[in-house]
């Protein structure tokens, strides 16, 4: 191979790879890449939660009458709340004015954080679903996670009331 072809091929390939790495990182929704989701937002026939880039909400077509706590129907994503172990972001689905499903994305690394999160979030999620509000108790040993969970859930609820 000649020098010029090598220089062109080498540079273009390298630039493409680096660019792809950048795009790949940007495609991840929240600041930290070590993310996973707990909970399921897709009851019955509904499509799963849309992956929206904006931390605010997205109101779908259905306009159910507001009930007791005045929540609109649809899927609402709370702002990510970052604590020292990473971000937590709660997404809720409201149907008939009630929170019917809840999902939280959270950091999975370092592995200690993942262990804390994977233990705490199902508990928090269950509490939130039964309380139908952000008044959830702190899970012991997961103070930061619980705090961020509350904050993000509050923001999702606020979006649902708008």
């Amino acid at each position: 191979m000649r020098r010029t072809s090598a220089a062109v091929i080498g540079t273009v390939t390298s630039a493409a790879l680096i660019f792809a790495a950048k795009l790949g990182a940007d495609a991840v929704e929240t600041p930290d890449t070590g993310q996973t989701a707990s909970g399921d937002l897709a009851p019955a026939a509904e499509a799963p939660a849309p992956a929206s880039k904006a931390p605010a909400s997205r109101a779908p077509g259905g306009k159910a009458p507001a009930r007791r706590i005045g929540l609109k129907d649809g899927v609402f994503k709370g702002a990510a709340s970052v604590n020292q172990y990473g971000p937590i972001q709660v997404t809720i689905r409201v149907a008939g004015g009630k929170i019917t499903a809840l999902r939280a994305t959270h950091a999975t690394t370092p592995a200690t954080t993942r262990q804390v999160n994977t233990r705490a979030i199902p508990v928090l999620r269950q509490e939130a679903l039964s309380a139908q509000s952000a008044q959830v108790d702190t899970v012991s040993g997961a103070t930061f996670t619980s705090g961020s969970f509350r904050t993000s859930l509050q923001s999702a609820l606020a979006a649902a009331r708008r």
């Binding site: 191979m1 000649r2 020098r3 090598a6 792809a20 890449t33």
Partner: peptide, 30 residues
């Protein structure tokens, strides 16, 4: 002249991939 690029290509690709590997961390770590 006909083979001078071979080594250059390998060296460029090495550094390109090295940068990409580091980039995976850089871009994911604001």
């Amino acid at each position: 002249a006909r083979v001078a690029g071979n080594r250059l290509l390998i060296v460029l690709l090495f550094w390109g991939m090295f940068a990409t590997s580091v980039g995976l961390w850089v871009f994911a770590t604001p």
